[in-house]
Amino acid sequence: GAPPLPPYSAGGREVTMKKGDILTLLNSTNKDWWKVEVNDRQGFVPAAYVKKLDSGTGKELVLALYDYQEK
């Protein structure tokens, strides 16, 4: 199953993602919540729920390892 959710501390809205989604990583300075862009929406997802990909394009991409439903 998915890892436990860290307390929400990102101070911005969250976004929903599905397992297998490829998201653009915008900011990973917060260790628990990373800012991503998905379907032209920006928001935060739990860092433990995604994995960085080596895209080779200069853009940082992450793979959704679990479904996440915004609150």
Rank of each mutant, 00 (worst) to 15 (best):
Gly1Val: 08
Gly1Asp: 14
Gly1Glu: 15
Gly1Thr: 11
Gly1Ile: 07
Ala2Pro: 11
Ala2Gln: 10
Ala2Leu: 13
Ala2Asp: 08
Ala2Arg: 11
Ala2Gly: 11
Pro3Thr: 04
Pro3Lys: 03
Pro3Ser: 06
Pro4Lys: 06
Pro4Tyr: 06
Leu5Gln: 08
Pro6Asp: 05
Pro6Glu: 03
Pro6Ser: 02
Pro6Ile: 03
Pro6Thr: 02
Pro6Val: 03
Pro7Glu: 15
Pro7Ile: 11
Pro7Phe: 08
Pro7Asp: 14
Pro7Val: 08
Tyr8Val: 09
Tyr8Gly: 15
Tyr8Gln: 14
Tyr8Thr: 15
Tyr8Ala: 09
Ser9Leu: 11
Ser9Lys: 05
Ser9Trp: 09
Ser9Val: 09
Ala10Lys: 04
Ala10Met: 14
Ala10Arg: 04
Ala10His: 15
Gly11Arg: 04
Gly11Lys: 04
Gly11Pro: 15
Gly11Phe: 05
Gly12Leu: 09
Gly12Glu: 05
Gly12Ser: 07
Arg13Ser: 13
Arg13Met: 14
Arg13Leu: 15
Arg13Ala: 15
Arg13His: 15
Arg13Tyr: 11
Arg13Asp: 13
Glu14Val: 11
Glu14Phe: 07
Glu14Leu: 09
Val15Gln: 05
Val15Cys: 08
Thr16Trp: 09
Thr16Arg: 09
Met17Ser: 00
Met17Val: 07
Lys18Pro: 01
Lys18Met: 11
Lys18Thr: 08
Lys18Trp: 09
Lys18Cys: 07
Lys18Glu: 06
Lys19Tyr: 05
Lys19Gln: 09
Lys19Pro: 03
Lys19Thr: 08
Lys19Phe: 05
Gly20Tyr: 03
Gly20Pro: 00
Gly20Asp: 05
Gly20Arg: 02
Gly20Cys: 03
Asp21Ile: 03
Asp21Ser: 06
Asp21Gln: 13
Ile22Gln: 04
Ile22Phe: 05
Ile22Val: 09
Ile22Asp: 01
Ile22Ser: 02
Leu23Cys: 08
Leu23Asp: 00
Leu23Ala: 09
Leu23His: 03
Leu23Gly: 13
Thr24Ala: 11
Thr24Pro: 10
Leu25Cys: 05
Leu25Phe: 03
Leu25Val: 07
Leu25Tyr: 02
Leu25Ala: 02
Leu26Met: 07
Leu26Thr: 04
Leu26Phe: 03
Asn27Tyr: 05
Asn27Glu: 14
Asn27Ala: 11
Asn27Asp: 15
Asn27Lys: 06
Ser28Gly: 11
Ser28Tyr: 08
Ser28Phe: 06
Thr29Met: 13
Thr29His: 11
Thr29Gly: 09
Asn30Ile: 04
Asn30Lys: 05
Asn30Tyr: 06
Asn30Arg: 08
Lys31Asp: 15
Lys31Thr: 10
Lys31Ile: 10
Lys31Pro: 13
Lys31Phe: 08
Asp32His: 13
Asp32Trp: 13
Asp32Phe: 13
Trp33Arg: 01
Trp33Gly: 00
Trp33Ser: 01
Trp33Ala: 00
Trp34Glu: 00
Trp34Met: 04
Lys35Arg: 12
Lys35Glu: 15
Lys35Asn: 06
Val36Tyr: 01
Val36Met: 01
Val36Lys: 00
Glu37Val: 08
Val38Met: 13
Val38Thr: 13
Asn39Tyr: 13
Asn39His: 10
Asn39Ala: 13
Asn39Val: 11
Asp40Ser: 12
Asp40Cys: 09
Asp40Asn: 11
Asp40Gln: 12
Arg41Asn: 13
Arg41Pro: 00
Arg41Glu: 13
Arg41Thr: 11
Arg41Tyr: 13
Gln42Met: 10
Gln42Tyr: 09
Gln42Ser: 12
Gln42Cys: 07
Gly43Met: 06
Gly43Gln: 01
Phe44Arg: 02
Phe44Cys: 07
Phe44Tyr: 15
Phe44Trp: 15
Phe44Met: 07
Phe44Ser: 03
Phe44Leu: 06
Phe44Ala: 02
Val45Asn: 00
Val45Pro: 01
Val45Glu: 00
Pro46Met: 01
Pro46Val: 03
Pro46Leu: 02
Pro46Lys: 01
Pro46Tyr: 01
Ala47Pro: 02
Ala47Met: 04
Ala47Ile: 02
Ala48Met: 11
Ala48His: 08
Ala48Leu: 10
Ala48Thr: 10
Tyr49Ser: 04
Tyr49Asn: 02
Tyr49Gly: 02
Tyr49Asp: 01
Tyr49Met: 05
Val50Trp: 00
Val50Thr: 04
Val50Pro: 01
Val50Gly: 01
Val50Ile: 07
Lys51Tyr: 05
Lys51Gly: 08
Lys51His: 11
Lys51Cys: 09
Lys52Thr: 08
Lys52Phe: 09
Lys52Asn: 04
Lys52Ala: 08
Leu53Phe: 11
Asp54Lys: 07
Asp54Gly: 14
Asp54Met: 13
Asp54Val: 15
Asp54Leu: 14
Ser55Pro: 10
Ser55His: 14
Ser55Asp: 12
Gly56Trp: 09
Thr57Cys: 06
Thr57Tyr: 12
Thr57Leu: 15
Thr57His: 11
Thr57Ile: 09
Thr57Ser: 14
Thr57Asn: 14
Gly58Ala: 10
Gly58Val: 10
Gly58Met: 10
Gly58Gln: 09
Lys59Val: 15
Lys59Glu: 12
Glu60Pro: 10
Glu60Val: 15
Glu60Tyr: 09
Glu60Ile: 15
Glu60His: 12
Leu61Tyr: 14
Leu61Trp: 09
Val62Asn: 01
Val62Trp: 05
Val62Phe: 05
Val62Gly: 15
Ala64His: 00
Ala64Gly: 04
Leu65His: 03
Leu65Tyr: 03
Leu65Met: 10
Leu65Asp: 02
Leu65Glu: 04
Tyr66Gln: 05
Tyr66Ile: 04
Asp67Arg: 02
Asp67Asn: 07
Tyr68Pro: 00
Tyr68Thr: 02
Tyr68Arg: 02
Gln69Phe: 14
Gln69Gly: 13
Gln69Leu: 13
Gln69His: 09
Gln69Met: 15
Gln69Cys: 08
Glu70Cys: 05
Glu70Arg: 08
Glu70Pro: 15
Glu70Leu: 06
Glu70Phe: 06
Lys71Glu: 09
Lys71Cys: 08
Lys71Val: 14
Lys71Asp: 14
Lys71Trp: 10
Lys71Met: 11
Lys71Ile: 12
